[in-house]
Amino acid sequence: MAEMKKIATRESYGNTLKELAAENPDIVVLDADLAAATKTGIFKKEYPDRFIDCGIAEANMMGVAAGLASCGKIPFASSFAMFAAGRAFEIVRNSIGYPGLNVKIGATHAGISVGEDGATHQCCEDIALMRTIPGMTIINPADDTEARAAVKAAAEIDGPVYMRFGRLAAPVFNDPETYKFELGKGVTLREGNDITIIATGLMVNEAVMASDMLKEEGINAGVINIHTIKPLDKDIICKAAEDSGILMTVEEHSVIGGLGSAVAEAVTECYPVPVIKIGVNDVYGHSGPAAELLKEFGLCADNIAEQVRKALK
């Protein structure tokens, strides 16, 4: 396979905000002193009058975004996942979620792949937190193509959306020419009924690679990309449970409360089958190069393939 181009989804976020701003004058962007890192700086450069730096004060930023939205603006409030979902959780819940305001939260630097900054900044709890907020849409795109489409989709719907982006440059495996994003719909990337791997975000490409490796050994592992974690595409998941009888979830997030939990919750209602969860196993991360950390935590194609072999033994 030819080497794929790599782009971090936070880059996609910044670039798409700039694009959208040209079409929609209501779009404004808020950040909490992280514009260079979240890539909202790309927007800021072009639209300084529509960029609101809130300083290092994420709680207030979320409240300001709520107020702006109540007056017809479409605010994209941006910070690291740790602060957007973690620190500001209760403001997101009470000032954005409860009133159902049209605020888009752009959370970058999610997961263990934050790398060298270490555990304080490696947010593996955000999906779990955001899933509990009624009415919150959660999108965790897998590559640049999907992330761009996701930001556009978020801008189009009326209501709060949490978007999860990564720091690490990730392979662009979706063809921008043919890719079509459907909010709330899972995407089958590989067919196969021995097991179905359900992955999200950065782990989708790893799952695809694992499936291709397993294919050579005669194991048919299906792969489904769940970019929208809420509302969850229960149909595609329940069908996979029925077809393959065993599921594996892969996410760069705690195994508690994230995609794995969402999938397990779904199949217990429709077609209970074993769900093997690959994710961060209820531990904190630590400093190190992102690629090495991902390997260490088993968030890579090799480990996914290995766990499939074990599961099917």
Partner: peptide, 13 residues
């Protein structure tokens, strides 16, 4: 503590 932030957003809008 949250209302004043929303009020700031409204004023800024």
């Amino acid at each position: 503590g949250q209302g004043i932030s929303a009020a700031c957003g409204m004023a800024l809008a």
